[in-house]
């Protein structure tokens, strides 16, 4: 497993097709607060990292702030949540400076997000094809006929075998794996520079999961897209991504190359790795993590590398 992921990324962190550029995304000291009746809850507390055209995994347990972080980058934190950052720069543009209108435009053109449950993300009263075509048309202004051809090609690209049928189908007529792939097609048709995928495969069966990951993998290596892959599954992230950030209590507590996750040093990461039952170890008790309150107080480790 380690051998494969080495060949997967070691040589070309930046694809040759594009000139080496400044980081695709730079985040510095990002905070997200949700004011509540019992005082504000700080879901993300000072996160800094940079992303190149690579696969960056963000792992953590529920409540660690990983999903909120993904939304905060897209400025999609629902009110009354407040986002604050020293720097939130994508493709050299400071996102905090954009108006709501400009941000929407920017989002559609450069960033996309895939959510966990495809059933809720697709519009139930519109055919899948029409939805994908709409996403494409709003950004390019192409004709319906041209869009249709483009959508069919995109559906084919995400390995949907009979794109014609899927084009005219409604979300409820597709299986989970199929709608997740249609969702990916919709998110990718605008050829974003950055894709944020929040648990994109955890609702899928293993066979479908492999296919979906292969599509994402290919897009990163071929188109030079940046991918933020948010997941609770350490094993999956370690084998799929190039780099991993581990979040706990709204902070990044560890950052390391994915292949070296097994050698993680932070007691929390070590605890997570040990708590997972494995086929190699027979029965017995699983080590239970003792959470040290000091972990929450630790200074952020800063931009990972």
């Amino acid at each position: 497993m380690t051998g494969r992921s080495m060949t997967g990324r070691s040589m070309t962190p930046v694809p040759p097709a594009r000139p080496p550029v400044a980081p695709l995304l730079a985040v510095e000291d990002l905070h997200v607060r949700f004011p509540g009746p019992g005082g504000a809850v700080e879901a993300v507390r000072g996160v800094s990292f940079t992303l190149k055209r690579e696969k960056l995994g963000i792992v953590g347990e529920s409540g660690s702030g990983k999903s909120t972080l993904g939304r905060a980058i897209l400025r999609l934190v629902p009110p009354p949540g407040e986002v604050r950052a020293k720097r939130l720069e994508l493709l050299g543009t400071e996102l905090s400076d954009l108006s709501e209108e400009e941000m929407r435009e920017f989002r559609g053109r450069h960033v996309s997000m895939i959510l966990q449950d495809p059933g809720f993300s697709l519009n139930p009263v519109m055919t899948v094809g029409a939805q994908i075509a709409e996403a494409w048309q709003t950004h390019t202004g192409h004709s319906w006929k041209k869009s249709r051809r483009r959508v069919l090609a995109m559906l084919q690209a995400v390995r949907i075998r009979d794109p014609e049928r899927v084009f005219d189908a409604y979300a409820h007529e597709l299986s989970g794996g199929m709608s997740q792939r249609a969702m990916i097609a919709m998110m990718l048709i605008t050829e974003p520079d950055l894709l944020i995928a929040d648990e994109p495969t955890s609702a899928l069966d293993v066979t479908v999961q492999t296919q979906v990951l292969a599509i994402l993998d290919e897009l990163v290596s071929r188109r030079g897209m940046g991918l933020i892959f948010i997941s609770h599954d350490l094993g999956l992230v370690a084998s799929f991504c190039d780099r991993v950030l581990v979040m706990y209590g709204g902070r990044i507590i560890e950052s390391c190359p994915a292949a070296e996750l097994d050698n993680a040093t932070h007691p929390y990461t070590r605890g997570l790795l040990a708590a997972q039952p494995t086929l190699e170890r027979a029965g017995g008790r699983l080590p239970v993590m003792e959470r040290d309150p000091a972990w929450l107080a630790e200074a952020d480790t800063g931009p990972g590398r």
């Binding site: 497993m1 494969r4 999961q209 492999t210 292969a214 094993g235 370690a238 084998s239 086929l279």
Partner: peptide, 8 residues
């Protein structure tokens, strides 16, 4: 599949 992702 337990071994995680391997590029097909």
């Amino acid at each position: 599949s337990r071994r995680g992702y391997s590029r097909p």
